[in-house]
Simulated scan of single mutants.
Amino acid sequence: MRSVVYSETGPSAVLRLVERPEPAAGPGEVVVRVTRSGVNPTDWKHRAGTGLSDLHGEVAPGHDGAGVVEAVGPGVDHVGVGDRVWLLLARHGRDYGTAAERTVQPANRVVPLPDGASFDLGAALGVPFVTAHRLLTSGAVPRLAPGALAGHTVLVAGGAGAVGNAAIQLARWAGATVVTTVSSARKGALAHAAGAHHVVNYREGDPAAGILAVAPAGVDLIAEVAPAANTALDLAVARVHGTIAVYAIDGGGDLVLPVRPALSKNLRFEFTVLYTLDETLVQAAVDDITAALSDNAVRVGEPAGLPLHHYDLAETADAHDAVERGAVGKVLVDLD
């Protein structure tokens, strides 16, 4: 089979296209013929040798993907040969992720993909949507479903990003009023397409005033991509007993928190990374995302505010570079 691999960290030039033996399914495992591989920032950060790197030999990148089951090992009964599936955390704890024509994965990382959902959508779910689910359930609501966030106002920082888009879609499906911040009119249009009720361009005027005009008492939950840069804004617009759920360090890795304003509002700060997320929380996310898929509440593409950028497997380095440069939308590698 063809696979893209790297054996040393560095720029995207370390990626190379190779032929490797096809994998077999052991007990509790599934072999998937990958049709689409989703590229996320974590993929290039691992490859580049940042603090996320866990290189111990040859690695095929890619946590997210979608495809068709080719084989199942003993003890696997939730999917069968020929089933359409999506993959999550495929590279976590394993050397070969989804940048390969076939990948063998633990059964709990292989999820049925409804017939009405495209492989493009399936490959866009893992990192963005599981992260978004955890952010939205960091407050008083432990699970998502239609109506679960009714009466809540959610602020999504950076609503045009992949996680921001996922948070908007899931929050809207769960009944929240969704406000998002963006940096341009183009990104504002994408956030509206994703389902945001109110969009605030933080480069035009006072973003706090714009947010509080929509939610005078403050927002219940903030999905935060840039905590260091947005501390003052978050403290200004969070409501009493609100939650600030952080999933990235855009704008700087050191958070200096004025304690008194946070104390005065009884705020809760929570932080999310998928690699150490308890398995029960991962499975809760999978279950709720599956329900949203069944309700046709999750979409990709320009009409959903998430433009798609396709690359061939041989162009995986270009795909990594596109994500590293901040491509707006979802970068996918095609293997079919």
Rank of each mutant, 00 (worst) to 15 (best):
R2H: 07
S7H: 13
A13Y: 15
L15V: 10
V34F: 00
S37V: 10
P41F: 10
T42G: 15
A60C: 15
G62T: 03
G62N: 00
G65E: 05
A66F: 01
V68E: 01
V72F: 00
G73L: 05
P74T: 00
V76S: 06
D77Y: 02
W86T: 00
A90R: 04
R94D: 14
A99E: 08
A100G: 01
R102S: 10
P106F: 10
N108Y: 14
R109Y: 11
R109A: 04
P112V: 00
S118F: 11
D120I: 05
D120F: 11
G122P: 01
A123W: 08
L125F: 13
L125M: 08
P128A: 01
V130L: 15
H133D: 06
L135G: 05
S138M: 01
P142K: 09
L144D: 01
A145G: 07
G147E: 09
A150T: 15
H152S: 09
L155Q: 06
A157D: 11
I168K: 03
Q169E: 02
T180D: 11
L190N: 06
H192G: 11
A193I: 02
G195M: 04
V199C: 07
Y202N: 12
G205R: 12
P207N: 07
A209F: 14
V214W: 03
G218T: 06
V219K: 03
A226H: 05
A228I: 11
A228Q: 09
N230P: 06
A232T: 13
L233W: 03
V240F: 13
H241L: 12
H241F: 14
G242P: 02
A248S: 13
A248L: 06
D250N: 14
V259H: 10
V259L: 15
A262C: 07
K265L: 15
F269S: 05
T276M: 10
T276F: 12
L281K: 11
A284G: 12
A292S: 03
R299M: 08
P303F: 13
L308F: 07
E315N: 02
T316Q: 12
T316V: 09
V331G: 02
V333K: 00
D334R: 14
